[in-house]
Computed example of a mutant assay.
Amino acid sequence: MNPLLKNLEGGLIVSCQALEDEPLFGSMIMSKMAIAAREGGAVGIRANSPADIRAIKQVIDLPVIGLYKKNYQDSEVYITPTSKEVEEVVEAGADIVAFDATFRERPGGQVLDEFVKEIKSKFPSVLLMADISTIEEGLHAVELGCDLISTTLAGYTEDTDHITGFDKTLLSALVEKAGCPIVAEGRVNTPELAAECIRAGAFAVVVGSAITRPQEITKQFVKEIEITRKME
């Protein structure tokens, strides 16, 4: 196994991301978040945008899974959608590049197979993480030679929008059939669930909002308090 991947095995990867409309948006803030995650025992960081990746790489020595969220009018794919974003993520210093590996058409009409072939040709030494939403997408990503498969997009595509929590069935199926490292990601919102994913065979677990989005964490506390007050 690649030594870099070995460092991630069995551990927690913290997704340090904040979009422009969020209170913690900013590369300096995300770099501080990454330091806090490292001090808490995280084995890796998942980060969005070249600016955030560079800032994080300057302050920690953990592996960084890089992606670049970009919206294109002709496609629903927004996680590292084209080779241009891949190039920027690689140049920023990402150790692994994550991208949308669903069957949806990419910007410019490009299909997944063409995209993976292109980035493998341009960046042959870069490790690839395929963000998928279904078992079929996961197995196809393995066939394309991706190094890691992540359940990131289960519940976030038109075909899977009926899924409202972490997809345990998808994880189990991929662990059984894929034959490569499977990362549990997407609505892993408690320590107990993260541990359950590892017991189910996940190579590693990615947690984002439950750790790094205080506005969402606050909402959960407020919701429970309001429910209690209404019951009184």
Rank of each mutant, 00 (worst) to 15 (best):
A194T: 06
I225S: 10
A195Q: 07
A101W: 01
R106P: 11
K70W: 10
C180W: 00
G155W: 11
T151S: 12
T228V: 10
A194Q: 03
E143I: 13
E137R: 04
V206M: 03
I60K: 09
I149Q: 04
R104V: 02
P50D: 12
E185T: 00
C16V: 15
Q73W: 05
A101Y: 02
C146M: 15
L144K: 10
P107V: 08
K177S: 07
I211S: 00
E143D: 15
K84D: 12
R213W: 03
L128T: 04
A173V: 00
K219I: 01
Q215I: 10
E158N: 13
E20K: 13
K223C: 00
P181W: 00
C16D: 06
V183R: 00
T160N: 06
I211E: 00
D159Y: 07
V14Y: 06
F99P: 00
S31K: 14
I65E: 01
I149Y: 06
A47P: 12
Y156D: 08
E114Y: 06
F115V: 09
F123H: 14
G208P: 05
S172D: 10
C197K: 03
V111R: 13
A141P: 04
A204L: 02
L67P: 04
L170I: 06
Y68M: 13
I227A: 14
K177A: 04
L4T: 13
F166T: 01
V188N: 01
I60S: 08
D147R: 14
R104G: 02
D113C: 01
K6N: 14
T164E: 14
L127Y: 13
P63M: 15
S31A: 15
V90C: 09
V222Q: 11
D167F: 07
G108I: 07
A51F: 06
P23Q: 10
K70L: 10
E192N: 03
V205T: 05
A98V: 08
F221M: 09
D61Y: 02
E137Q: 09
A36L: 12
E232P: 00
L62P: 07
T82M: 09
L62E: 07
K84H: 08
K223T: 03
D167G: 09
L153A: 07
A130E: 02
D147T: 14
L171A: 02
E232F: 09
T164L: 14
I53Q: 06
M33C: 10
A178M: 01
T134R: 08
L148I: 15
P63D: 14
D131P: 03
T157S: 08
Q110F: 04
I225P: 03
E87Q: 14
E185H: 03
T190G: 07
D100Y: 06
L127M: 14
M30Q: 15
Q110R: 14
P23T: 11
D100S: 09
E118F: 06
G155R: 09
E158W: 12
G66D: 04
F221L: 12
L170P: 04
S15Q: 03
I217V: 13
L127N: 10
K168P: 00
A210T: 05
R38H: 13
V90T: 04
F123Y: 15
R213K: 14
D95Q: 08
A94R: 09
L128H: 05
I225T: 15
H162R: 08
N7L: 12
S15E: 01
C197G: 01
E88M: 13
A204H: 01
E226C: 05
G165F: 08
A194K: 04
R187D: 00
V89L: 05
A101C: 11
Q17W: 10
